Simulated scan of single mutants.
Amino acid sequence: MRDPVVVATGQTYDRESIALWIESGHNTCPKTGQNLAHTSLIPNRALKNLISMWCREQKIPFELTETSHKSNGVSIPNKAAVEATRMTVSFSTEAANGVVYELRALAKTNSDSRGFIAEAGAIPLLVRYLGSDVGSELPNLQVNAVTTILNLSILEANKTNVMETDGALNGIIEVLRSGATWEAKGNAAATIFSLSGVHSYRKRLGRKNRVIKGLVDLAQLGPNSSKRDALVAILTLASDRDTVGRLIEAGVVEIVAGVLDSLPEEAVTILEVVVKKGGLAAIAAVYNKIKKLAVLLREGSETSRESAAATLVTICRKGGSEMVAELAAMPGIERIIWELMGSGTVRARRKAATLLRILRRWAAGLDPSPILERPNTTVSGTSATTVM
């Protein structure tokens, strides 16, 4: 493809090929089979610029009739971004999907593209395709629109553009809660995660019950790929202490415990953060999950074993004797902890050693909460010796 053009249905073809198709008497789109409302061929400069960039990288000769703007000697698809953005205005909703997909692809390429697309005014135009009315009629368009915003938000400056554009955040939340496909919902969750990279936005997002509810519902009901997007966003929001309480009220502990088997690393990391920042409410919510965490000590990956040990230490310290008794009741728990002390990561071994001291202090009838961690230690008998 050397001269890409867009037809009335929004599909892109090489000019010579589609012109020959039309001149042969066809009045339909070869890919979709739809009748063409008109036979005008609109240059797809966004794609042409990508083709040019690829040819340049591969050292393949390619004539580009319109030169790209340059900044510091580096070619930048400025006009391509502007043109692609303008094209979203030119087409009807049905025909816009192909153009929005081109923007999605262009926004994925590099930071310069993301900057120029946003500067060209794409974000307000994309917002119109986030609504449930579009999702019900053209689910692919909704997916492409929210994914383009996700790709644009990777650029730090664009996070502000998204958060300050009228209707953008509400549109993303609407897709998260009632998107037409799981892909759309998952990419909306990924956008929430991207935006929460800014501390002030993280707090702002965490105060929105619709965000919390949408993420928790997706983590409960979605397929694993979408659940993972939701869990990563939840984990980021949970770093704010005020948000943790809202997550607990929304049932995040129960939901996360439900995916401990399928997505153990993400789930147990969230539990670690929740019990650390959530106070007694979090400890109480996790009480019935102690045995599941103990199983992870034995059967989990290196990362999940480490987080499980850290979570259990926090639970036992803050929850007191009742929590320790629940852990101690699990058959073979001391042997499991000993194994982790011998084969876990440095942090896992340290947490396991602390956990064993807590259990032994409880068995001796003493308060387990005063136990402090000792760096890089393992337990021998009732005393601790440094591991070299």
Rank of each mutant, 00 (worst) to 15 (best):
A8Y: 11
A8R: 02
A8K: 02
E16V: 13
C29N: 11
N35Q: 13
A37V: 03
S40A: 15
R45E: 05
A46G: 15
A46L: 06
A46F: 10
F62V: 09
E63R: 06
S68W: 00
I76H: 01
I76S: 03
A80W: 04
S92T: 08
E94W: 02
S113T: 10
R114Q: 15
F116I: 05
A118C: 12
E119N: 13
E119T: 07
A122R: 05
P124S: 01
L125R: 15
V127Y: 08
Y129I: 13
D133W: 09
N140D: 15
V143E: 15
V143Y: 14
A145Q: 08
A157N: 12
T165P: 13
G167C: 09
I173H: 00
E183S: 11
A189M: 08
F193R: 04
L195V: 09
N209H: 11
V211Q: 00
K227M: 14
R228Y: 01
A238T: 14
S239E: 14
E249K: 15
V259L: 06
I270N: 11
L271V: 05
V273C: 08
V275N: 12
G278C: 07
L293K: 03
L293Q: 03
A294T: 10
V295P: 00
L297N: 07
L297T: 07
T314F: 00
K318T: 03
A328I: 09
G332I: 05
I333L: 12
S343H: 10
R347W: 05
A348V: 10
L355V: 07
W362G: 01
A364G: 13
L372R: 10
V379F: 03
S380C: 05
V387Q: 04
